[in-house]
Design a protein around this nucleic acid. Sequence first.
DNA 1: ACTATTGTATTATTCATCTGGTACAATAAT
DNA 2: ATTATTGTACCAGATGAATAATACAATAGT
Lengths: 123, 123
Amino acid sequence: MTWQFSEDRAIYTQIAEQVKLRIIAGIYPVGTRLPSVRELAAEASVNPNTMQRALADLEREGLLYSERTSGRYVTEDCEKIRQIRHGLAQSVAKEFFFRMEQLGYTRPQALKLAEETEEQGNE
Amino acid sequence: MTWQFSEDRAIYTQIAEQVKLRIIAGIYPVGTRLPSVRELAAEASVNPNTMQRALADLEREGLLYSERTSGRYVTEDCEKIRQIRHGLAQSVAKEFFFRMEQLGYTRPQALKLAEETEEQGNE
DNA sequence: ACTATTGTATTATTCATCTGGTACAATAAT
DNA sequence: ATTATTGTACCAGATGAATAATACAATAGT
């Protein structure tokens, strides 16, 4: 499992984002145990405190829960995961239109450009 | 002219981004003079140094140039502005697909959801 | 009972960002 | 010539992010 960070945002927010995506994508399946904070931190070449902070955020959101000494687990609430997935997709779509409109594209123009982009660059 | 910043990224990067958008949108038209660093800083409730840093970035990118004492101007290179606009639009479209694929949507599914989102929420 | 592993808390340090204040050089306006 | 405004540079301080190094409580495994 690879971890990549950009430098323009706090790392712990990027970690939280990526872990959330892995849960949604099923890479960390429902109900399963995550690697320990220390393992994940080593994997991401990050301080355990930073990893801890990111995971605590997801816990607050209800996507994770931790059992004191056995480890940290993905929620078993499939419906919650579905909702978050759908909510994120909506946000992504809305942000797409918002940004395109900022650039002076109408919504139909934005869609047209997206379709063209879809056909071409698949790298 | 209003300025809004989120707290998850450095302010000067957000300023650079917003000024770039204003140039592309024609709010700061080609060749015109910008308000002074101090004016813009006051307008955005930001330290002049922060504004200066953001504008210096755009200068490095060739979107602005400054005449020592008369002020700072938008480039007259319309073609450059067009290119940047188009490049940004491409980036936005690619990022849209990238994020949707991370959420487990295929490209056609992503487009479908975008079309639905387009019809509905226009707030 | 003992040990190792778990999440968690604490403290100190480094670093970039941002602010605030000041200063300087160049020149347009007077 | 003088003045005001321009971009620009510099420095000190405050804040938050991230690292580093520990330490502790709880419990599963032995």
